[in-house]
Protein backbone atom coordinates (compact mmCIF):
# COMPACT_ATOMS: atom_id res chain seq x y z
CA UNK A 1 0.00 0.00 0.00
CA UNK A 2 1.44 3.35 -0.97
CA UNK A 3 2.57 5.50 1.88
CA UNK A 4 0.25 8.46 2.49
CA UNK A 5 2.08 11.16 4.44
CA UNK A 6 0.26 12.60 7.42
CA UNK A 7 1.13 16.23 7.93
CA UNK A 8 0.09 18.56 10.70
CA UNK A 9 0.28 22.29 10.00
CA UNK A 10 0.07 24.86 12.77
CA UNK A 11 -1.20 28.08 11.22
CA UNK A 12 -1.57 31.47 12.83
CA UNK A 13 -5.04 32.98 12.58
CA UNK A 14 -4.19 36.36 11.08
CA UNK A 15 -1.78 35.48 8.31
CA UNK A 16 -1.07 31.88 7.48
CA UNK A 17 -4.50 30.42 8.21
CA UNK A 18 -6.07 33.23 6.19
CA UNK A 19 -3.55 32.51 3.45
CA UNK A 20 -4.54 28.86 3.51
CA UNK A 21 -8.16 29.90 3.41
CA UNK A 22 -7.45 32.05 0.37
CA UNK A 23 -5.91 29.08 -1.38
CA UNK A 24 -9.12 27.22 -0.71
CA UNK A 25 -11.54 29.92 -1.78
CA UNK A 26 -9.50 30.53 -4.91
CA UNK A 27 -9.94 26.86 -5.72
CA UNK A 28 -6.20 26.26 -5.82
CA UNK A 29 -5.48 22.56 -5.68
CA UNK A 30 -3.09 21.24 -3.11
CA UNK A 31 -2.38 17.84 -1.60
CA UNK A 32 -4.94 16.70 0.94
CA UNK A 33 -2.51 15.12 3.38
CA UNK A 34 -2.42 18.11 5.68
CA UNK A 35 -4.43 18.70 8.84
CA UNK A 36 -4.48 22.40 9.67
CA UNK A 37 -4.57 23.56 13.27
CA UNK A 38 -5.36 27.21 13.77
CA UNK A 39 -3.72 29.11 16.62
CA UNK A 40 -4.17 32.82 17.20
CA UNK A 41 -0.45 33.51 16.82
CA UNK A 42 2.56 31.47 15.81
CA UNK A 43 3.98 32.60 19.14
CA UNK A 44 1.50 30.23 20.76
CA UNK A 45 3.12 27.26 19.12
CA UNK A 46 5.31 25.54 21.63
CA UNK A 47 7.63 22.58 21.25
CA UNK A 48 5.13 20.36 23.10
CA UNK A 49 2.61 20.75 20.25
CA UNK A 50 5.11 19.72 17.63
CA UNK A 51 6.48 16.80 19.63
CA UNK A 52 3.02 15.53 20.44
CA UNK A 53 2.11 15.71 16.78
CA UNK A 54 5.04 13.47 15.92
CA UNK A 55 4.30 11.06 18.73
CA UNK A 56 0.68 10.79 17.65
CA UNK A 57 1.69 9.80 14.14
CA UNK A 58 2.51 12.87 12.10
CA UNK A 59 5.16 12.22 9.47
CA UNK A 60 5.83 15.93 9.02
CA UNK A 61 4.99 19.10 10.92
CA UNK A 62 4.66 22.56 9.41
CA UNK A 63 4.74 25.75 11.40
CA UNK A 64 3.52 28.91 9.69
CA UNK A 65 3.18 32.49 10.84
CA UNK A 66 3.19 36.09 9.72
CA UNK A 67 6.28 37.49 8.05
CA UNK A 68 8.78 39.06 10.47
CA UNK A 69 7.61 42.53 11.33
CA UNK A 70 3.99 41.79 10.44
CA UNK A 71 2.87 39.86 13.48
CA UNK A 72 -0.58 40.89 14.59
CA UNK A 73 0.71 40.77 18.17
CA UNK A 74 4.00 42.56 17.34
CA UNK A 75 6.62 39.96 18.26
CA UNK A 76 4.93 36.60 18.51
CA UNK A 77 6.45 35.29 15.32
CA UNK A 78 9.96 36.07 16.58
CA UNK A 79 9.26 33.89 19.58
CA UNK A 80 8.08 31.22 17.21
CA UNK A 81 11.29 31.51 15.21
CA UNK A 82 13.52 31.20 18.25
CA UNK A 83 11.59 28.25 19.60
CA UNK A 84 11.64 26.61 16.21
CA UNK A 85 15.42 26.88 15.84
CA UNK A 86 16.04 25.37 19.26
CA UNK A 87 13.44 22.68 18.66
CA UNK A 88 15.12 21.82 15.39
CA UNK A 89 18.40 21.10 17.19
CA UNK A 90 16.57 18.86 19.64
CA UNK A 91 14.59 17.01 17.00
CA UNK A 92 17.75 16.19 15.07
CA UNK A 93 19.37 14.88 18.25
CA UNK A 94 16.42 12.54 18.71
CA UNK A 95 16.91 11.04 15.29
CA UNK A 96 14.01 12.70 13.47
CA UNK A 97 15.13 13.92 10.07
CA UNK A 98 15.41 17.68 9.97
CA UNK A 99 13.32 17.86 6.80
CA UNK A 100 10.27 16.64 8.70
CA UNK A 101 9.91 19.93 10.54
CA UNK A 102 9.57 23.15 8.59
CA UNK A 103 8.89 26.78 9.34
CA UNK A 104 7.60 29.11 6.69
CA UNK A 105 6.14 32.59 6.79
CA UNK A 106 2.87 32.86 4.88
CA UNK A 107 0.92 36.10 4.72
CA UNK A 108 -2.82 36.42 4.33
CA UNK A 109 -2.51 37.13 0.63
CA UNK A 110 -0.14 34.27 -0.13
CA UNK A 111 -2.63 31.60 -1.06
CA UNK A 112 -0.51 30.37 -3.92
CA UNK A 113 2.61 30.13 -1.76
CA UNK A 114 0.64 28.11 0.78
CA UNK A 115 -0.56 25.65 -1.85
CA UNK A 116 2.96 25.29 -3.22
CA UNK A 117 4.37 24.83 0.27
CA UNK A 118 1.94 22.01 1.01
CA UNK A 119 2.65 20.30 -2.28
CA UNK A 120 6.42 20.46 -1.95
CA UNK A 121 6.43 19.51 1.73
CA UNK A 122 4.14 16.55 1.11
CA UNK A 123 6.46 15.37 -1.61
CA UNK A 124 9.49 15.73 0.66
CA UNK A 125 7.76 13.66 3.33
CA UNK A 126 6.59 11.09 0.82
CA UNK A 127 10.19 10.61 -0.25
CA UNK A 128 11.39 10.33 3.34
CA UNK A 129 8.83 7.69 4.18
CA UNK A 130 6.88 7.28 7.38
CA UNK A 131 8.35 8.69 10.56
CA UNK A 132 9.71 5.78 12.59
CA UNK A 133 8.52 7.23 15.82
CA UNK A 134 5.46 5.05 16.37
CA UNK A 135 7.42 1.81 16.13
CA UNK A 136 10.13 3.15 18.39
CA UNK A 137 7.64 4.22 21.02
CA UNK A 138 6.12 0.73 21.31
CA UNK A 139 9.10 -1.29 22.39
CA UNK A 140 10.30 -2.42 25.82
CA UNK A 141 12.80 -5.17 25.09
Amino acid sequence: MEFKPRIVAFLCNWCSYTGADLAGTSRMEYKANVRAIRVMCSGRIEPTFVLRAFVKGADGVLVCGCHPGDCHYQEGNYRCLRRFLLLQKYVVQMGIETERLKLEWISASEGRQFAELINSFTETIANLGPCKIKETMKVLT
Binding site: P47, T48, L51, R79, L81, R82
Partner: peptide
Protein backbone atom coordinates in the same frame (compact mmCIF):
# COMPACT_ATOMS: atom_id res chain seq x y z
CA UNK B 1 7.03 17.32 28.96
CA UNK B 2 9.27 19.53 31.10
CA UNK B 3 12.09 19.67 28.60
CA UNK B 4 9.82 21.07 25.93
CA UNK B 5 8.54 23.72 28.32
CA UNK B 6 12.09 24.71 29.16
CA UNK B 7 13.02 24.92 25.50
CA UNK B 8 10.05 27.19 25.01
CA UNK B 9 11.09 29.39 27.93
CA UNK B 10 14.75 29.60 26.87
CA UNK B 11 13.88 30.48 23.33
CA UNK B 12 11.55 33.22 24.49
CA UNK B 13 14.30 35.11 26.27
CA UNK B 14 16.92 35.04 23.55
CA UNK B 15 17.45 38.63 22.55
CA UNK B 16 17.90 38.30 18.80
CA UNK B 17 15.59 38.48 15.78
Amino acid sequence: DPGAKMMSAIASIIDEK
